[in-house]
Amino acid sequence: MSSSDTESLTPDSVFELLSNHRRRMVLYYLRRNGGSVGMQELAKQIASMENDVPADELTSQQRKRVYVSLYQTHLPKMAEMDTIDYDKESGIVRLTERADDIDEYLTTNDRSTYPWTFHYLLLVIAGGDRAVFVRAGRSRLRRRPDASAGCWNPRHIRGFGRRTVLADSKQRRGDSDRTEPV
């Protein structure tokens, strides 16, 4: 899991990190609060979010369970991935620059990484070929009902074209705001 300073996080590492709610909360809290915090305070704030009670009304058990979970499990894992620095002596947890890699995977917009415009363009091209083929077929099989050939109807090809335009404009409308990792 350890990686050199120059390499960015792999998608597998990012999704593994984000697969746990407490690790997401650590990232969320650090992002919201200047990027560094004491271990005890972090545990208190996360326990407060988890249990939906104000931090000063937490039971010691609620606080302790989150503390142990962070200390024994999640912070070592995040430190191993170089997304946080964790100083055991001072108990200070800090976000590292590498944590920025995670932001690429967290956007509020619906912009897809899949090239839908290209996908629909291909469908239009493929649909055109089929239309020629179906027309040839229909001239040979005149008694075939229209409905059975409906899926290759040229009207649908125009439909693909329209969808291409819609998908493209939808992609353009998205903005690049980052979301909160919780």
């Binding site: 369970r65 142990v68 979970s69 200390y71 024994q72 999640h74």
Partner: peptide
């Protein structure tokens, strides 16, 4: 929180605080 239960159980059995144990993730 099974990981917390494991840490606390080992901590109880050894009579040591959880902070003194190595990371469970190791």
């Amino acid at each position: 929180d099974i990981c917390v239960t494991v840490s606390e159980t080992v901590s109880d059995a050894l009579g040591e605080p959880v902070d003194a144990l190595p990371p469970l993730s190791d």
